[in-house]
Computed example of a mutant assay.
Amino acid sequence: MTKTICIILTILAFTGCSSDRTEPTPTPAESMYFPPLTGNTWETKSMTDLKWNQAAVQPLLDYLELKHSKSFIILVNGRIVMENYFNGHSPTTNWYWASAGKTLTSTITGIAQQENLLNINDKISKYLGTGWTSETLAQENLITCKHLLTMTSGLDDSTDDVDPASLIYKADAGTRWAYHNVYVKLQDAVAKASGQTWENYFNAKLRDKIGMNGTWVQLGVNSVYTSTSRSMARFGLLMLNKGKWDKTQILDETYFNEATNTSQNINLGYGYLWWLNGKANYHLPQSQLTFSGSIIPTAPNDMFMALGKNDQKIYVIPNKNMVIIRMGDAADNVNLALSDFDKVLWEKISALYQ
């Protein structure tokens, strides 16, 4: 009897505990938002809801304006948290991406591969024909599409020109990292492989599918993309979501992962025309020096970046579901894709949420 009573009391005790205890309901993760393909509708998110530091906003805006910015956008989960324009710029003004647009070429190359139009492991002469460089046939045949994506063609980078006379042997493909305009040959390869103009293929496979505006403009040897800041933000949002726009996988996720991770063992901070933060070391354009540490030490380590001359920026930060856009003139006298501007800017951005 005593044993039975103990069992009953034990059961009642556990029952009482379970009925008295209310488990907290977890806050559901906010869904990712994608703006409509047409129109100006774009959901916003308040800093109050995010519990961000309002006092950090004005110092950030003052710095952006001081540094010749034209636009600045922060997205969190696809929603606009900040959108500011300076110096006569507006939401409808187009501006050039400069080398930040290299990431568009990377993305379209991946799309062409998933459509079985080309293979990035093929030699580039399969699509361009031989004699597109001044190298010997054996040297030229070493250069693959992937070498152009990773800046390891081995071609002399002392000139921006990409005519055959300017594309001179410096090292075997894959053995030297050097920032070079020769990546534009990927646009020619896609055009040849698809049987379309580069711009028509780009518009159909990427621009129109995510609601971007913009056009390609020929500036010297470069085909430079120009668009609104929101169009740049749309592309950043696509890449935040690993090549997926809403329910449509536009860029294969496997290729996306290759593009946004270290692509070779010379410059750890470089993927397929994307810059990568948080690596052990990196190289800069026009230099063969290896710099230790993260490219932007004040920014999140998981960030990957599209960076262009005169400080055109797309920052994608996966662990914060965040995309940041900056367009404008050069922040300082240094006109490279990377400068001290990034370091200070990220100190001010981080003050918003830390």
Rank of each mutant, 00 (worst) to 15 (best):
T48F: 05
S166L: 05
A55V: 11
L186G: 02
E65M: 07
W97T: 05
A204Q: 13
S134A: 14
K242P: 06
L237E: 13
R234F: 09
T262E: 02
K102F: 03
A165G: 02
L118I: 02
D332L: 14
P28F: 09
G214A: 06
L75T: 08
S339Y: 05
D342N: 14
D311E: 14
L142W: 00
T105C: 09
L37D: 05
T130I: 10
H180P: 03
L104Q: 10
P297G: 07
I8F: 12
S134K: 09
A171H: 11
D122Y: 02
I11Q: 01
N121P: 02
V221R: 11
L338D: 12
Q312P: 02
S350K: 15
T175C: 07
S46V: 08
F86Q: 05
A29L: 14
K192V: 11
I108L: 15
T215Y: 13
T103N: 01
L206D: 01
R234C: 11
L336S: 14
S125G: 07
Y33G: 06
T228W: 04
P297D: 06
G236Q: 02
M303L: 06
G328V: 09
N319E: 13
A56G: 08
K205R: 13
G101W: 00
G88L: 11
C17K: 06
D157P: 10
M151C: 05
D302C: 02
G88I: 09
K247H: 11
G269N: 03
D163G: 08
D156H: 08
L237I: 10
C17Y: 15
A112V: 00
T152L: 07
S46H: 09
L64I: 10
G211C: 06
T44W: 02
L345V: 04
G131K: 11
T228F: 08
N141C: 04
L155C: 09
V316I: 15
A13H: 06
W198L: 03
E30N: 10
D252N: 15
P297L: 04
T2V: 09
G88E: 10
P28C: 00
K67P: 13
V217S: 12
T290W: 04
M232Q: 13
T22L: 12
K170G: 02
I74C: 01
K102C: 05
S287D: 12
M322S: 03
T215Q: 10
C6Y: 09
N119L: 03
V162A: 05
T48A: 14
F72W: 05
G220A: 06
C6M: 09
L50P: 08
I250N: 03
